[in-house]
């Protein structure tokens, strides 16, 4: 019988599950909104990922949970912090990674990693929505655009505006007043993306900006954000279509180590069901 393991990354906004086979190759993935019930979201994503892999739930030998909801994942055998999982996952997809910028729905992290993908240093903002996905969501809502359109629209800016407010709530009024003055949606949005990039880069500076830089988390799917980061850094950043799954991939890699009898870097907290 083949070995399968899973990583479940339950974030504040979306839940992600990745199934790996014994070779470390991806067998199945699933992603969906976390919603009000972490338990339900985790279970649904797990069932879907198992189905996508074409296997039975019982064939999954070991499950590692990560993300903000990691302690509530009923089928998780243990938990590993999202910092370690993002580092491991990014290293797996881009082995040259030395610095990770992870922008999620509710927090932003800067992580520096060594050549093995172990965390050397990190810092994060989880106290305030400034510089996170929430900030983008709020801007999209204020402008009446779907979230997935704001990145591409921002790329068409002719004369990017400077957004001066830090607070997500106040930026809503700032956007409204720019609209009143007849500024274009493109210029406003580019300003919004630049503001988040600026905040992320100040976090990155605290851990040191060493290439290669990998951009992970849900916001990495936004092309406007990729461009804003690259422009301000003056460097290319690694982005993968799997970027949103990097935390889950890292968790699954930890699960694989465990299934192979290796030791887990993070101490197990308590066994799940």
């Amino acid at each position: 019988m083949r070995t399968y393991v899973a990583g479940a990354d339950v974030g504040s906004t979306t839940a992600k599950v990745v199934i790996l086979d014994g070779e470390g190759d991806i067998a199945g993935t699933s992603l969906g909104p976390t919603g009000a019930s972490i338990v339900e979201a985790a279970q649904r994503r797990f069932q879907e990922a198992v189905k996508a892999a074409g296997i039975d739930e019982h064939e999954v030998e070991f499950v590692v949970g990560t993300g903000y909801g990691r302690f509530k994942i009923p089928f998780g055998h243990t938990q590993v912090t999202e910092i370690s999982c993002h580092a491991r996952g990014a290293h797996h997809l881009f082995p040259g990674t030395r610095t990770i910028v992870d922008i999620g729905g509710q927090d932003t992290k800067a992580i520096s990693v060594n050549e093995l993908g172990d965390v050397a240093d990190f810092c994060m903002n989880d106290k305030c929505a400034a510089g996170t996905g929430r900030f983008l969501e709020s801007a999209a809502l204020t402008l009446g655009l779907p979230l997935e359109e704001i990145g591409p629209v921002s790329l068409r800016a002719a004369r990017p505006l400077r957004i001066t407010n830090v607070c997500t709530v106040f930026v809503e009024s700032e956007i409204m007043s720019h609209m009143m003055k007849g500024e274009t949606v493109e210029d406003i949005l580019r300003g919004v993306h630049n503001a988040i990039a600026g905040r992320s880069i100040s976090l990155l500076r605290r851990v040191g900006i060493n290439p290669e830089i990998s951009f992970t988390g849900g916001v990495s799917r936004n092309v406007g954000m990729v461009r804003a980061l690259e422009d301000q850094l003056g460097l290319r950043v690694n982005v993968s279509p799997l970027s949103q799954f990097i935390g889950a991939i890292g968790a699954a890699l930890f699960a694989l180590e465990r299934a192979r009898g290796g030791k887990l870097v993070a101490a197990p907290v308590e066994g799940g069901t």
Partner: peptide, 17 residues
């Protein structure tokens, strides 16, 4: 516990659930 108004919204939703 969230100081940020935006993050407090998620906390409120948690309390409701």
């Amino acid at each position: 516990s969230s100081i940020c108004a935006v993050l407090a919204e998620s906390e409120v939703i948690n309390h409701i659930s």
